[in-house]
Amino acid sequence: QVALSRTQVCGILREELFQGDAFHQSDTHIFIIMGASGDLAKKKIYPTIWWLFRDGLLPENTFIVGYARSRLTVADIRKQSEPFFKATPEEKLKLEDFFARNSYVAGQYDDAASYQRLNSHMNALHLGSQANRLFYLALPPTVYEAVTKNIHESCMSQIGWNRIIVEKPFGRDLQSSDRLSNHISSLFREDQIYRIDHYLGKEMVQNLMVLRFANRIFGPIWNRDNIACVILTFKEPFGTEGRGGYFDEFGIIRDVMQNHLLQMLCLVAMEKPASTNSDDVRDEKVKVLKCISEVQANNVVLGQYVGNPDGEGEATKGYLDDPTVPRGSTTATFAAVVLYVENERWDGVPFILRCGKALNERKAEVRLQFHDVAGDIFHQQCKRNELVIRVQPNEAVYTKMMTKKPGMFFNPEESELDLTYGNRYKNVKLPDAYERLILDVFCGSQMHFVRSDELREAWRIFTPLLHQIELEKPKPIPYIYGSRGPTEADELMKRVGFQYEGTYKWVNPHKL
């Protein structure tokens, strides 16, 4: 086992960053958080920038500027975001240094004079007029057009580079997404736009490419001749908990499936790229999406959770019991969808996408189930092999396979070949997804960000279904809070070829 401390991990990262040409360590950078008073800024962006600063992973002359409508001070920003920093008493001095680099400007999102004030403020910072500028839009999409237009007109660096990070949702359907994309691309070049999907920053999602293309053993079996089906799962054990009003506007397909799960599907299904260059990788992902037809209604199961009468606390409440959810809402909190990649490698292999709230566990994984062994000599005792990439929690890679049961006879039983990170790298604290992705933006690497043509294809696949749901308002199937979801989803999976045995229990190697 390799035991690495946080300091050692960050030392390795620093070495990698400083050796590259793309990370300008000594240049002045300004990180501007648009929507600095909001939840995302408070819980994710400010803490992430602090962790990067604490670990010495930001360029040395980096300033952080918050911008929002609320009249706040840096002290206010500190008060609301610091509880999420997880700072230790030993880091007190470092924390003071961090907040000394912070400033805040209040202004409207659609007022040109406010942006001119913001620009004057940035120019007044040390070497601010020639600094590289990175704008993070932690804002609702309704203000994107006004904000990007004003940034472009008043706040661009004339000497350094300018980059803009856009948070999902990128529209509600193909038409609104196209409108937003066309607007942003009329102001910024594609190499300046970073559409963030934080799932692409997760260690195991990034590991998929290495697993596939750096190991000879997987190449020959990664196709329709050997793989019976692919299941991509995202499960949350909690409901909307008072935030249903926002969720109800989008629903589970827009929230998770059309982005996170579809991105994971691309990494499983794509061909080997010409290189690890950002556009070479994204070219292959677009090719996969172009091979997927629009979702067919007979390959869809929609569910909505109801309270568990035997549960406790939140578990007793259904989705419609959330006071922020519109009365009688038919918005799905669970969806199972089957897609097919219609190309030579994957023809006929079902890709089953499942996601839901208020389920029995927290889990995100990719599961490849292989065909049955031909010419069975073990009297149907063999179960199908599976390769599982567990994204969260407890990152893991393992192969479910058959071995001989101890004893006199040739009785096979299920076991696993474990390729888990935790076994080799004991207690290594890896940077989280937002840390990686923000560092990628500083480096100018777009590999783990969504390109406009990729986004367009993703919406093309799901828009007809979303429009049909909005028009017909089908009643989702009720499922109990804390269950596996509607049984109809299991029946759909069985119908397209997935075999669920229920006889195997994964042993978490992190707890051995």
Rank of each mutant, 00 (worst) to 15 (best):
Q296I: 11
L262Y: 02
R327I: 15
H260A: 03
P273C: 04
N394Y: 13
A374E: 15
T331Q: 12
K426G: 15
I477F: 14
R456T: 08
N360Y: 03
I292D: 06
G375C: 14
F442N: 07
A269T: 08
L419D: 01
C355L: 05
R282C: 01
K505Y: 08
K357A: 01
Q369T: 06
R424T: 08
P406E: 01
G356S: 02
L262H: 03
R484Y: 03
L368Q: 03
S329K: 04
L359G: 05
V300N: 05
R484F: 03
R484H: 05
S329L: 02
F378H: 05
K383Y: 15
E361R: 05
N308T: 10
E414F: 12
H260N: 04
G348K: 11
N385L: 03
A458V: 02
K317G: 14
E314S: 14
F409W: 12
L368H: 03
V373W: 06
Q296L: 15
P393F: 02
Q380V: 07
L289W: 00
R254N: 05
E414W: 12
I389G: 03
A269C: 12
T316E: 14
S452G: 15
I438A: 04
I352Y: 06
M493K: 11
I438T: 07
C355T: 12
Y434N: 05
T463G: 05
T316C: 14
I438Q: 04
H371P: 03
G303Q: 06
C266M: 07
L265P: 02
W346E: 03
I389N: 01
T333D: 02
F449G: 05
E457I: 07
F334A: 09
Y305S: 03
Y425W: 09
P323V: 14
E413V: 13
E294K: 10
K405A: 15
F498Q: 08
R345E: 11
N427T: 13
F442M: 08
P350K: 04
L439D: 02
T331E: 07
A396W: 02
V300W: 12
N411K: 09
K429W: 05
I480D: 14
R390H: 13
L359F: 03
D432A: 11
D376K: 10
N259W: 02
V281R: 00
Y434E: 01
F498N: 13
L430V: 09
R345L: 10
L439V: 09
Q258W: 02
V256H: 00
Y398R: 03
E457Y: 09
R367Y: 04
V306H: 13
E294T: 12
A396V: 06
R254L: 05
I477V: 12
V397E: 00
R362Y: 07
F351V: 05
A315P: 13
I352K: 00
L265K: 02
S275P: 03
E386S: 06
V306A: 13
C382F: 10
K473S: 12
G502C: 12
T487V: 15
N259S: 05
H371F: 07
R460S: 08
R390M: 07
I389C: 12
N385Y: 01
V388M: 00
P474C: 14
A297Q: 10
D321E: 13
L465A: 10
D321H: 07
R362H: 12
F498E: 03
N308D: 15
K357E: 03
L430I: 08
I480S: 13
M402V: 11
S278P: 13
T420N: 09
P412D: 03
K285N: 00
G375M: 11
L262S: 09
L387Y: 06
K505Q: 15
I377W: 11
G328H: 15
N411T: 14
A274M: 07
V295N: 08
L466A: 06
A374L: 14
G444P: 02
E365Q: 06
K429Q: 13
V441I: 08
P323D: 09
M402W: 08
E395L: 08
L262E: 04
E365K: 02
H371K: 15
P486L: 06
A336G: 10
K383N: 14
N427S: 10
N394H: 09
Q446H: 01
K383W: 11
S452N: 15
E361F: 02
A332E: 12
D280G: 07
D432L: 07
A396S: 13
K405H: 10
E361A: 09
G318S: 11
P273W: 00
P464S: 13
N277A: 12
A269I: 06
F351S: 02
R424F: 05
I352R: 02
V373D: 08
Q296A: 14
E472Y: 14
E454C: 02
F334H: 07
M402A: 11
E491H: 14
V349D: 04
N298F: 10
R354M: 01
V366G: 00
H379S: 14
V450W: 00
T503F: 09
E501A: 10
T403G: 10
P476Y: 00
D280S: 12
Q468S: 14
E414G: 10
P393M: 04
G356F: 02
F498T: 08
L430D: 05
R436K: 14
M270Q: 06
M401L: 09
V388P: 02
L465M: 12
H467I: 09
P406A: 11
K475T: 13
L262N: 05
T316L: 10
A364K: 05
W459M: 02
P350I: 01
A297G: 15
H260G: 01
R484L: 00
K400Y: 05
W346L: 00
T503R: 11
V366I: 15
K317Y: 14
G356N: 00
S483Q: 09
A269W: 01
V286F: 08
N277F: 12
E454V: 07
H379Q: 12
I292C: 15
I377L: 15
Q258K: 00
W506L: 05
G303D: 02
N277Y: 13
V428R: 12
T403Y: 06
R495D: 15
N308F: 11
E413L: 13
F442P: 00
V450M: 05
R436E: 01
E435M: 09
H379K: 14
I480C: 12
C291A: 14
T324Q: 13
Q296W: 11
E454W: 03
M447G: 03
C355I: 04
A315L: 13
V306K: 12
K285I: 04
P273G: 00
V338Y: 07
E488R: 10
A269E: 03
I389Q: 02
C291W: 08
C291P: 04
L417V: 01
E488I: 10
A315S: 15
G356T: 00
V391K: 04
F351P: 06
V288R: 03
E312T: 11
L455P: 07
M270C: 14
E342P: 09
K290S: 14
E416P: 02
I477K: 15
H379P: 15
G444K: 10
L471Q: 14
P406Y: 01
E488N: 09
E454I: 08
L471C: 09
I377P: 12
V306P: 00
D283L: 04
K357S: 02
G407W: 07
R354D: 04
G502N: 15
R436Q: 08
R436M: 01
Q392F: 06
N299H: 14
F442E: 03
E284G: 11
A315T: 12
K363N: 08
N427G: 14
H371D: 08
D322L: 05
G485F: 04
L339Q: 04
V281H: 03
I292A: 09
E294V: 12
K475R: 15
G497R: 09
W459P: 00
C382G: 13
S293V: 06
P309E: 14
N385T: 01
Y425F: 15
V286E: 10
T276G: 13
G348V: 01
M401P: 03
N343V: 05
K400M: 01
G318Y: 03
A332N: 08
L492F: 11
L419F: 07
E414K: 05
H448M: 07
Y504P: 05
N343I: 03
P476L: 06
A336P: 02
P393W: 00
C443P: 06
